[in-house]
């Protein structure tokens, strides 16, 4: 089943002053249950592509269809709703809400979705257990290590039961041990629960774990390998 389909997306930053062509026609189809790495040199457009797929940024042209809906044609409010319902985000780093505890960070999105308190709390415990930090539930992000923070972020991304999880360089700030742990967790969730993951990375060890590797260069896909 196709989860994401992009057709000819382009992105031009600063179209009026000094135009930067970050994407030059990207066609990409992602199916349910994939574990895909987007790779490429710095400035190749990885972040831009993920932001557009995630509805955080607008493409200059082209179509992005997620679960059958063209998200390039919907309003800002609908787009926020779309992000809430369909997508789990893991950003590069420090993307937890500083004033909330780990558990509250995970619970928050379910609160937005209007899930009842009992269900929320049950699921928070499950999720924190599945990323292996149930014992840190009541700590604020500032008291957690980078790896722990990213695991909380993965738990949060999954909390809303999204169609897929987008992760822009989730291991960029992690040491190799934490990187391996995070990837183990992601791979396990992918295999056991069938969750679709799309992540960008520079890190060869991360690339090695992906089952599909899409390589961008200069805003275009130059290779797409499924192993």
């Amino acid at each position: 089943m196709t989860v994401i389909e992009t057709k000819g997306i382009t992105k031009v930053y600063n179209p009026k002053k000094v135009p930067v062509h970050a994407l030059r026609g990207v066609d990409l189809t992602i199916r349910k249950g994939e574990f895909t790495a987007i790779v490429g040199p710095s400035g190749s457009g990885k972040t831009t592509l993920l932001n557009i797929i995630g509805g955080l940024d607008q493409a200059s042209s082209g179509v992005v269809i997620v679960d059958g809906v063209d998200i390039t044609r919907i309003s800002d409010n609908k787009l926020i709703d779309f992000r809430k319902e369909k997508i789990g985000f893991v950003f590069q780093a420090y993307n937890l809400i500083p004033v909330l505890t780990a558990a509250e960070n995970v619970e928050f999105i379910m609160l937005l979705q209007g899930i009842s308190k009992d269900k929320r709390q049950k699921r928070v415990v499950e999720l924190l257990k599945s990323v292996g930090i149930e014992d840190q539930a009541d700590k604020r992000p500032s008291k957690l290590s980078g790896g722990q923070q990213q695991r909380v972020a993965v738990a949060r991304a999954l909390a809303s039961k999204p169609s897929f999880v987008l992760a822009d360089e989730p291991t960029a700030n992690l040491d190799s041990k934490s990187t391996a742990q995070l990837l183990d967790i992601m791979a396990k969730l992918n295999q056991e629960e069938g969750m679709t993951f799309i992540f960008s990375t520079h890190d060869q060890r991360v690339i090695d774990r992906a089952r599909r590797v899409v390589t961008l260069e200069d805003g275009m896909i130059i290779s797409d390998v499924t192993r």
């Binding site: 955080l56 409010n77 926020i80 999105i109």
Partner: peptide, 15 residues
């Protein structure tokens, strides 16, 4: 930053 994350993960601006 916090507002960015919150709208990013899907909290409506109105709320």
């Amino acid at each position: 930053f916090e507002f960015g994350i919150l709208t990013g993960i899907g909290m409506s601006r109105k709320k």
